[in-house]
Amino acid sequence: MDQHRRKFILQWADNAMILGQRLSEWCGHGPILEQDIAITNIALDLIGEARYLYQLLAKEEGGSVTEDDYPFLRKEQSFYNLLLVEQPNEDWAFTIVRQCIFDHFHFHFLMEMKNSADPALAAIAEKTLKEARYHLKYSSEWLIRLGDGTDESHQKMQNALQTMVKFVGEAYEPVEADLAMLEAGIGPDLSNIKEKALSDLKQVVTQSTLVWPNQHFDRTGGKNGSHSEHLGYILATMQYMQRSYPGVEW
């Protein structure tokens, strides 16, 4: 298989997988029952999206490879997700800010991918776009609700934005696989997505009465397998069963 295409698909799938895993940590701990269900619904949507992609890769690689091998048997450096999605939940403010940043990228990414020259990828994008559109509405409304809420909620959201803003840019910085896929007509032009997604995101931030932090230094590396310490902990939890009992099924 084309290694650039494989890596490009893993970048996409790992974003959905790792964020899905992160959000699932809220299960049973949501601020109220209704949001507990809402945020874990989103977690399941994302894990479902990752599965479509892992299934596609497993089918193409053939042999004894299954969809489970990708999330459960790869090491940290072979995950290509954004640093953004592995950041800890912290509290509801951080979770919503992280989600809103991701959803803006994700929605516009899928909008482009549904016109991809690769029919299998275009079909997955088309199928998951409806869910992503809802995620975007959900996290944007929460951003506005809390940013433009009480003094305390506003402060918490502003703090979260201050911390998260350095993880916004990575999604739009092309790595080798992105450039190869753009060349092949399969992947999107990230600079194009960046313009739309960031202008939408900043508009929601303004509507939330939050202030977009101007001074920051973009952190990158996730798309090439250099992760923050957090990913190791996520994988320790996520992969525990397969590592302890290889091949276990139920």
Binding site: I32, L33, E34, Q35, I37, A38, N41, K137, Y138, E141, R145
Partner: peptide, 20 residues
């Protein structure tokens, strides 16, 4: 039934809780 801070949130919550 469910709890929500306003009608918009109630609609979203209802979608998430009752139409899964």
């Amino acid at each position: 039934s469910l709890h929500a801070s306003d009608a918009d949130m109630a609609l979203e919550n209802a979608r998430d809780v009752y139409t899964r």
